[in-house]
Design a protein around this nucleic acid. Structure first.
Length: 197
DNA sequence: CCGGCGATGGTCT
DNA sequence: GACCATCGCCGGC
């Protein structure tokens, strides 16, 4: 069965960020490598960062050169370097001039797994189960910062195969100890969990 | 399996 | 000069 690779339209991203974060679970992240190989992965974990009043959101501290894209129109890539080593991939959501986005925290290979293992040679269960790991496995970095994700050209997202067996769970976001308690505890992290079965 | 800790560089004060 | 939306290593159980 071929993975679905038609890019999600702008309207998908131009909605409240928490809705987008939930709906991105099960969607596909697609990257056409420079040599033509296509990498596709299923999104399994996300986090919502919603607006200037969310003290965990980069946009809460004001618009700077670094966060400019986050304030821009939805459907673009917001990618930044953290801890001097790791590139984190986000999609910009909601409306223009409102800083909000969804961090992609976990994926599973769908197509091009051998290439991903080459890009990140570690045991398979550690391949892409973290925001800094998956960018390495998918060869995504800041050269795509600000890129329009709706064109389906080199980097985009698409509807995944429907999978009603998996449940959506939620909990607090990770690594935001600096935020106010109300935002530290907000259940704005979402992940796909196997059926209780 | 789990917790502590250091690496490392761009951004902002 | 501090901070940081992480990760892998190391040691202890």
């Amino acid at each position: 069965m071929r993975p679905l690779t038609k890019p999600l339209p702008r309207d998908f991203y131009a909605r409240p960020t928490i809705e987008v974060a939930r709906d991105l679970l099960g969607c596909h992240l697609c990257h056409r490598l420079p040599d033509g190989e296509l990498l596709v992965a299923r999104i399994t974990e996300t986090e919502a960062y919603d607006g200037p009043s969310d003290s965990a959101c980069h946009g809460a501290k004001g618009r700077t050169a670094r966060t400019d894209v986050l304030f821009g129109p939805p459907g673009h890539a917001y990618i930044y370097l953290i801890y001097g080593m790791y590139e984190l991939f986000n999609v910009v959501t909601d409306r223009d001039n409102y800083p909000a986005g969804v961090l992609i925290r976990g994926i599973e290979p769908v197509l091009g797994e051998a290439r991903m293992c080459q890009l990140r040679p570690v045991p398979r269960r550690n391949l892409c189960n973290g925001p800094g790991k998956l960018t390495r496995a998918m060869n995504i970095d800041r050269r795509y910062h600000g890129l329009d994700l709706t064109t389906g050209d080199t980097l985009w997202l698409s509807e995944g195969a429907s999978d009603e067996n998996y449940r959506i769970e939620s909990g607090p976001r990770i690594g935001i100890d600096y935020a106010d308690e109300i935002h530290r505890l907000a259940p704005w992290r979402f992940w796909l969990a196997p059926p209780p079965n």
